[in-house]
Simulated scan of single mutants.
Amino acid sequence: MRRETQNVLLVLLGGALLKIGLNGDYLRYVKASHQPWLLGAAVVMLVLGGVAIVRDVIVARDAAVADHAGHHHDTRSAWLLVLPVLAVFLIAPPALGSDSVKRDAAAGAVQGGQRPGSPFEPLPPGEVVPLTMTEFVTRAGWDAENSLTGRTVTLTGFVVREAGDTMLARMVIGCCAADASPVRVRLVGEAAEPLGVTPEDTWLTVTGTVVPGSTTQETGFRPDLTVHTAREVREPADPYES
C-alpha cells in the first residue's frame, strides 16, 4: 500500500470513529464508559493522518515525478480498504437482537451467572419497581429472601420467540458487542397472549410480577413474568445492559 493511501485511510478511520463517538452509534459496539477512549483514539488518528498528509504534500512538491507504471495495480487494490471505513460512515448496524438470543440458547448457554457473594439490597418502595432485565433475572434466581415475590416490576426489552413462547430479552455486554450474552424472561398470563403476534425484535416496556419457583436449572434460570401491562417503545439509545 502506498504511503498516501495509508494516510488517507488513517484520516477516514479517525473521522469514522469520531462520528460514531459523537452521534451515539458507538453504543452498538462498546459500553458507554468507553466513549472517552474512542474519541481520544479518533483525535489521535486524525492528527497523525493530517500531519502525515501535509508533510507528504510538501515533500512531493519538491520531488521529481516518479514512475507510476509499477504501482497502478497496488494502489487500486489498496483503495478497496476504504470501503469498510465508508460503511461505518454511511451504515449504522442494528443492535444485537433475537437472532443472537436464539444462537446463544442453541449453544446451551445458561443464564443467571454465579451466585452473588453479598446479599441483595432491598427493593425500593413504590407500587411499581423499575428494574433492568439483569437485576430481575438475577434476583429471581438467586435471592434467598424472594424479594420479588408479590412486587410489581417494570422491564424493558425486545421480543423473542422460542418454542411457541413469547420472551422479553436484553443483551448484556461486559466490554463490547463481541462478548454479548442474553438475559430472557418468559411472558405469561392473559395480558401476554396478545403479544404472541408481536414481531420479533419489537421493544416493549412490560409491567408484571414474577412467577414464584419458575427460575430453575431446567429453564436455564429463566424466570416467568405474569404480565399486567405491555406497551411498545422505541429502541433505547443504549440497547445493551452491562
Rank of each mutant, 00 (worst) to 15 (best):
M1Y: 03
E4D: 15
T5A: 04
N7M: 12
N7I: 12
V8P: 02
L9Y: 11
V11D: 05
L12H: 03
G21P: 03
G21T: 09
G21I: 03
N23M: 05
Y29C: 01
P36N: 06
L38E: 07
L39C: 11
A41R: 02
A41Q: 04
A42H: 11
M45Y: 13
L48Q: 10
V51N: 13
V51I: 15
A52C: 00
A52I: 07
I53M: 12
R55H: 12
D56L: 11
I58N: 06
I58H: 02
A60P: 03
A60V: 04
D67C: 01
A69N: 11
A69D: 13
H73I: 14
R76T: 06
S77I: 14
W79A: 03
L81H: 13
L83N: 07
L86W: 15
V88L: 12
I91S: 05
P93M: 08
L96K: 15
L96S: 09
D99M: 13
S100I: 06
S100R: 14
V101E: 14
V101D: 11
K102V: 13
D104W: 12
A106T: 07
A107K: 11
V110A: 13
G113N: 05
R115N: 09
P116F: 10
G117F: 09
L123R: 00
G126E: 05
G126S: 09
V129I: 07
V129T: 07
T132M: 04
E135H: 10
T138F: 07
G141I: 04
W142K: 14
A144S: 06
N146A: 10
N146T: 05
R151F: 01
R151W: 00
R151G: 02
T154E: 04
L155C: 11
G157H: 10
R161V: 08
R161S: 08
D165I: 00
D165T: 12
D165H: 15
M167L: 15
M171Q: 15
G174Y: 08
C175Y: 03
C175P: 00
D179N: 09
A180Q: 00
A180K: 03
P182E: 08
V185G: 11
V188A: 13
A192Y: 09
T198G: 05
W203G: 07
T205I: 08
T205S: 13
T207K: 00
G208V: 02
T209E: 01
V210C: 14
P212Y: 08
P212C: 03
T216P: 02
E218K: 10
G220H: 08
D224H: 09
D224T: 05
T226Y: 01
H228C: 02
T229M: 00
E235G: 03
P236M: 02
Y240I: 02
